[in-house]
């Protein structure tokens, strides 16, 4: 009986394929090294497998259910609030929720369980996490001059959530560790395992994006869509320009802006992109609300 001709080939093929699948789950850096060991036709197969595995990871992470997104956001926020707690001022906390929730109502996700807060840090920064969690720092709050500026800052963060920029960043090749953990979370969810075990690890991994930053183009997008969202909520969208001019005045050497400047395009670049993409197009909405009595009450 003749031996099947493909049998030996199958054995030799299987090992690299297995290695590749493992590599794909470990991260593309390692996977590329393994690629070098392969040659000829196997290389093409390997590349296909890798790109498919990458796509699958991205697609599945982009398709987190609402509960999974909330779980991810909760663990990320627990970590951030572990670094800096909320300011102990319930009037302020309620106020930012009133403004934020109103702006979010005009977004693509009006019914998400949006939550806002001010954390006790002198830094100038703001953060958003999947599931509708948004925090700004006391350092930023202290510098805001009116409600329209606050609304535009919150709108920028709301866009990061509705456009799933953080999830995209976690799943991107930049953060392979986070990506693999996100995939394991999805696997655990799909097998109905308890979330809490991976929660802490995930919070750490998810917080990585606060340190590494999002894609620069996602920041430009959040600025421009955020201005439009603020306009929809009845605020002057050009208050975003004032906020960025304010950031532009802070000495980059100042430690209060170190993290924000390392994770965002420069205020000048952000203003330039608003200039060319938005320009005067939102001027019909520029007569929107600039400030309210409630802002001044809380600000005192």
């Amino acid at each position: 009986m003749p031996r099947p001709v493909f049998s030996p080939d199958l054995t030799t093929l299987c090992k690299p394929m297995l290695a590749l699948l493992m590599a794909a789950s470990m991260g593309s850096a390692q996977a590329i090294d393994l690629n070098k060991l392969l040659s000829g036709e196997n290389l093409n197969t390997a590349i296909n497998i890798l790109s498919n595995a990458g796509d699958a990871a991205k697609a599945s992470s982009g398709n987190l259910g609402p509960e999974q997104e909330d779980a991810l956001g909760r663990s990320v926020m627990a970590n951030l609030l572990g670094a800096a707690p909320l300011v102990r001022d319930s009037a302020l906390q309620r106020y930012v929720n009133q403004v934020g929730r109103w702006v979010a109502l005009q977004s693509d996700m009006p019914n998400l369980n949006w939550r806002f807060g001010v954390i006790d840090s002198p830094n100038i920064n703001s953060f958003a996490a999947a599931g509708g969690y948004i925090l700004i720092t006391r350092g930023l709050w202290d510098r805001l001059e009116n409600e329209a500026e606050l609304a535009n800052v919150l709108a920028h963060e709301i866009i990061h959530v509705t456009r799933k920029h953080q999830i995209k960043a976690i799943a991107s090749s930049k953060t392979q560790l986070a990506s693999s953990q996100l995939i394991s979370l999805i696997a655990d969810y799909n097998s109905n395992k308890s979330y809490s075990k991976v929660g802490e690890k995930l919070g750490k991994a998810g917080s990585e994006i606060f340190v590494r930053g999002l894609d620069k183009n996602d920041e430009f997008e959040a600025d421009q869509l955020g201005m439009q969202l603020a306009a929809k909520a009845g605020y002057n969208p050009y208050a975003m320009v004032s906020v960025l001019q304010l950031l532009g005045r802070v000495n980059p050497a100042d430690s209060t802006v170190a993290l924000m400047f390392s994770t965002h395009p420069s205020p000048q670049d952000r203003l330039n992109s608003i200039d060319s993409a938005i320009g005067d197009k939102l001027e019909p909405w520029a007569e929107g609300v600039e400030n309210t009595a409630r802002f001044n009450q809380v600000k005192r």
């Binding site: 430009f220 929809k232 609300v289």
Partner: peptide, 23 residues
Amino acid sequence: AKIQALNYGLKAMGVTPITPSNG
């Protein structure tokens, strides 16, 4: 949030979408 916003003179507006770009 909606009731409060209306109390402070805010109203929802229609905005013609502008496609974002990196300028």
